[in-house]
Design a protein around this nucleic acid. Structure first.
Lengths: 236, 236
DNA sequence: CCGATGGCTTGGTATAGACCAGAAGTTTGC
DNA sequence: GCAAACTTCTGGTCTATACCAAGCCATCGG
């Protein structure tokens, strides 16, 4: 318990959430209800909720309410398992929705892959779920020469499986970049959360074993959905 | 420009920050000044500032004001360079302050290294700076058998250098875990920021080439100070 | 010259109330 | 039966104001 009331509130809410969660109740009462119960205003209450949101304990679904966050998904960027594989490996249910497909240039992809600025890409945008919660949106930018009819045959299978199986590409060199972000309004909307929600931005540039550029991809994760884990052995 | 006023404010502030930054002015005007200039209240203004803070564009120093954030430090967790080395390699100035040293048990360290719960550790806590900005606090938990007189001889040099040079340890196996967090009041205070400021928690467990536990360490970074980058080559 | 003091500035916290827009549930009308 | 329309509930945004405590700085006193 610290001096500020909202920090005390945070602790009381933490306790309440624990209890609710034990009873399988994952939705919190309405803000107005909570504010009245703790004899404060919505503003102060929301400050306490925001603290717990920052910790990853709870999250909100836009205009629907606050919910207890499920356990984070463990993700190892040094391994090549596809989303579906590693979600299932953790006993959870993956799901993907394709939001759009088109072919056009994209500056960040061109830069990251060392191609000219006007290089067109096959672009696939999709939203991915874990246990029915939308946790990320991503944009894939594939070099058309490496996968000519991609947009015609892609539905929602594994992209890497397709690249390997149909076109024989071996993904060999990756550069990965991760930074915290505040979700832009468009990304937030596609994830059904408020604009400015904390997120994690992951970008990948992928080349094959002959250093030819294959694909660039950019993911926007909800910050509380992810735990990054890396296991390394071998002396440096 | 979106519908909500605070999002418009965000864009205007972004513009103002750009201009100020170009003139070398890295401190923003006072909240009351800005609120008046944009004809709104401090509450709404702070919502806009909070958005930019989430993006990592600006940060605040507790009760001192808002400042433009410097470029993120690039960090590759798969490489073994010490803090001082990779900060300098990016043309920036590292600095470290030791906050405390003691010997006592620590449950998370014991668990992560596979030791018994009451195993004591040499504990060093330090705050680290980049270009004069405090960007992280960390706790190191070293197995005493591997570095008996550590607390007597440690001042503020490189710990890994010491482990290698004095005791001949070769750090071979690492497991690294990164999750977003809201800084706890104690950590926030040591970093001179408000409690609940967004952070990144990085934990490392380190074993030597014979799988003997050496050290566990836990870092709390300001979220906007860091860009994680991993380069991988070699086919999977 | 220098340390102590006190006032001013700044962000941090909090109250009280209001309106809006989207989500969800309920009723109505075909 | 079922879709459309309405009502209610919910979070999202915003105003206006107040007080506190820490940082900062100029002034004062030795």
């Amino acid at each position: 318990m610290s001096d500020a009331y909202y920090l005390q509130l945070t602790e009381q809410l933490r306790y309440l959430i624990d209890q609710n969660n034990a009873q399988g109740e994952r939705k919190l009462p309405a803000e107005r209800t909570l504010a009245e119960r703790f004899a404060t205003t919505r503003v102060t209450l929301r400050q306490a909720l925001g603290q717990l949101e920052g910790e990853g304990l709870i999250h909100r679904s836009n205009r629907r309410g606050w919910f207890v966050s499920p356990a984070r998904l463990v993700y190892d960027p040094t391994r090549d398992a596809g989303f579906n594989d590693y979600v299932r490996a953790q006993g959870r249910q993956p799901y993907t929705v394709v939001l759009g497909m088109e072919t056009r240039p994209h500056l960040p992809a061109a830069r990251a892959l060392g191609l000219s600025d006007d290089q067109p890409f096959h672009h696939i945008r999709r939203r991915r779920y874990v246990d029915n919660r939308a946790v990320l949106v991503e944009s894939l930018w594939v070099v058309p020469e490496r996968a000519p009819e991609l947009l015609g045959i892609y539905t929602d299978q594994s992209l890497w499986g397709l690249l390997r199986g149909r076109w024989g590409h071996h993904l060999a060199n990756r550069s990965i970049r991760m930074v915290s972000e505040a979700l832009a309004p468009v990304d937030a909307e596609e994830l059904f959360v408020a604009p400015g929600t904390a997120g994690l931005n992951i970008c990948r540039a992928i080349l094959d074993d002959q250093q030819r550029p294959i694909e660039f991809d950019e993911e926007h994760w909800l910050h509380d959905a992810l735990c990054i884990s890396v296991e390394l052995s071998g002396q440096q």
